[in-house]
Amino acid sequence: MSAAPAPGAAAPADDVARSVGTKAWTPYALLSPGMLWLAIFFLIPTVMLARMSLSSGSAFAGDGTFTFSVKSLQWGNYGDAISKYVIDSPIFQKSLIYALIATVLCLAIAYPLAYTIAFKAGRWRNLLLVLVIAPFFTSFLLRTTAWSTILSDSSVVVQFMESTGMLNVLHAINTPDSWPTWTQIFPDGLTGENRVLQTPLAVILGITYNFLPFMTLPLFASLERIDIRLIEAATDLYSSAFTAFRKVTFPLSLPGVVAGTLLTFIPAAGDPVNAALLGAANDSLMGNAIDAQFKATGNYPLAASLSVMLMVVIVTMVALYVRRAGTEELV
């Protein structure tokens, strides 16, 4: 996987470039305007954020300016962030665990969908692809608040979960009181005894829902590339349908699984919307904490150090992926 060039990437581009006979600087001329934009409004802001996380000052106190000095880097901002959002209340861990559960759910829901579109849809394929991205076209805040209706206490879904005893089981999944504070991720259970809205499950479902297309599309892209004859060869050689899937289809779809996981897990870990709209008032995640420190408290350095902590997790995950699979599959 690491050595072979990705299909349709470097090698054919090389052929075409030579056959068209372009000049060496052409690609750079094509790249530079867009890349300049990304450098100015993505890279430089990220550097400014890191700088802010080591500055002192507040937007609402004193003269509202920030001071940064290489001689006195304010590492204490990170100390504050960790004591406040990791130890005193486990918001950092909670964000990662909610995002992890949502990513697993996304994978479980998106895989059969992507598989069906890639292999079973026939002439409905294009229509199904349109249907996958169609929900994108309605306001996502409105779609998220729609879950308040679907999961309201008197709704069919919640009534069903209650009468089948599912809610009791989910409510029983909790972090015991005897555990230390920094592990209290579900202190009151995954759901309430008779409600889902404003519980962790509602937030996790909302995140799952919001990021589902980001899992489905990369999965579909990698499933679609699989040569169907490889699967046929496996079944011709007397493997059962399940074995063929386990030994051929799934391993070949792994690039899509990993890309989808990155595109789902990382943005989900910083999502402020679902916790704010579907969660309990005290159930805030990293996204909400960053938002509040910026907007309500004006403590930009603390908020910036929280953002950088998230960024470190992201860069680590992406780096691990790139070491294994290279960068061609990413875009």
Partner: peptide, 26 residues
Amino acid sequence: RGGINLLIFMPMATPEVVMGSSLLTL
């Protein structure tokens, strides 16, 4: 190529809160 691919991928994978707050900082 690798660097360019990475710079294009990162904005899609970065949480919006991080991009929003870094732009505000800028």
